[in-house]
């Protein structure tokens, strides 16, 4: 007879191993691109960048590429990959649906509307270069709360109702966006929409990193504390109350949290599909369902995955970039299907 080991022991090894892989992946990815820099040099430049150390004069151009362009981009990939995976885990438990992803509540289409409104009508000028991001963030939050309000009933917020409302409202937001673009046919609006619906790290700068980093890291820390309540939520709301967990209030609180996290990510990188849907499942297939484990490991797996996806996106057909969503799907689908078939993965009823 074996009893589950304490969580610290079961997750420590994968967490340490994956952290090492993540650090190595990031250094390699920062070094690769049109100008290839060896991992050793990359590490040296990064060290100089973080510590304000000295580099030789002839290395300035390489240093600029590494530190000013590639490092923020790869760091953004790390943050967004981790964030989307964590939010995906939480959302799937909150709405009790295996098909849910961070954008299920109309976040991405709401963000697109916000971004298009800003770029077409030029509102939010106070935010300067971040105006479009701010518009996307507000649009994402606005959409989430609208969906939440509409699906609210006297019985509380029922998960399936929330999902259906989110799907329906997404179509609504897309229609609004199309109308705006149709009435103001500037190429800028069209490319804005493309950016927000396909996702890209091309706009990454050091200035854009802190907000999203704080949102994702802070949000992940809070979500991890809700490991057991999330476990309980998947047993059903009535069972949850019999176990002392108020499903409605947990759901409400975590929705606000995940909406802010997703909004912050969408504002800087657009809506990168598939990661938040599939990484949670892949981690569950390997580690089992318990959230304290999944929430510790999923962000690392998501971050590693995203770093490599971004590398592929900017190097495969350089100098052009492939949309991230294309690569996440091309790589993720076969991995997911293979794992699912091998481990007889179950979600919900048979």
């Amino acid at each position: 007879m074996h009893i589950a080991a304490p969580p610290s022991r079961t997750t420590l090894v994968p967490v340490v191993a994956l952290s090492v892989v993540l650090a190595a992946s990031a250094v390699v990815a920062i070094g690769l691109g049109t100008a290839v820099v060896s991992p050793g040099d990359t590490a040296r430049y990064l060290w100089s960048g973080f510590t304000g150390g000295i580099i030789r004069a002839e290395e300035t151009t390489q240093y600029q590429i590494i530190w000013q362009i590639r490092t923020p981009r790869v760091l953004l990939a790390v943050i967004v990959g981790a964030g989307l995976s964590v939010v995906g885990v939480a959302i799937q438990a909150l709405v009790r649906n295996a098909l849910a992803d961070p954008f299920i509540l109309g976040v991405s289409s709401g963000a697109s509307v916000g971004a298009v409104v800003v770029s077409v009508f030029g509102v939010l000028a106070v935010f300067g270069v971040f105006a479009v991001s701010a518009g996307a963030f507000l649009g994402a939050l606005g959409a989430t709360f609208l969906v939440y309000l509409i699906s609210y009933s006297r019985m509380g917020v029922l998960p399936l109702r929330l999902v259906l409302t989110g799907v329906a409202m997404s179509f609504g937001f897309q229609a609004v966006m199309s109308v705006i673009i149709y009435l103001a046919p500037s190429s800028e609006a069209t490319s804005t929409v493309l950016f927000w619906s396909m996702g890209s790290f091309g706009a990454a700068t050091w200035g854009a990193l802190p907000v999203v980093a704080v949102a994702v890291v802070g949000g992940t820390v809070v979500l991890r504390r809700f490991g057991r309540p999330l476990d309980v939520l998947t047993l059903g709301d009535e069972t949850a109350s019999s176990l002392g967990v108020d499903a409605s209030s947990v759901r409400r609180g975590l929705f606000v949290l995940t909406a802010v996290m997703t909004g912050a990510m969408v504002a800087v990188s657009g809506a990168i599909g598939f990661v938040g849907l599939v990484i949670p499942h892949i981690v569950r297939i390997v580690l089992g369902a318990a959230h304290h484990r999944v929430l510790a490991v999923a962000p690392l797996v998501g971050a590693i995955f995203m770093v490599w996806v971004d590398l592929a996106s900017r190097t495969l057909v350089a100098p052009r970039e492939l949309p991230l969503g294309v690569i996440t799907a091309l790589v993720g689908v076969p991995v997911f299907i293979t794992l699912m078939r091998r481990k007889a993965y179950l979600f919900g009823s048979r």
Partner: peptide
């Protein structure tokens, strides 16, 4: 909804 083990 999720495939927890019996002991979990």
């Amino acid at each position: 909804d999720l495939d927890f083990t019996v002991e979990e």
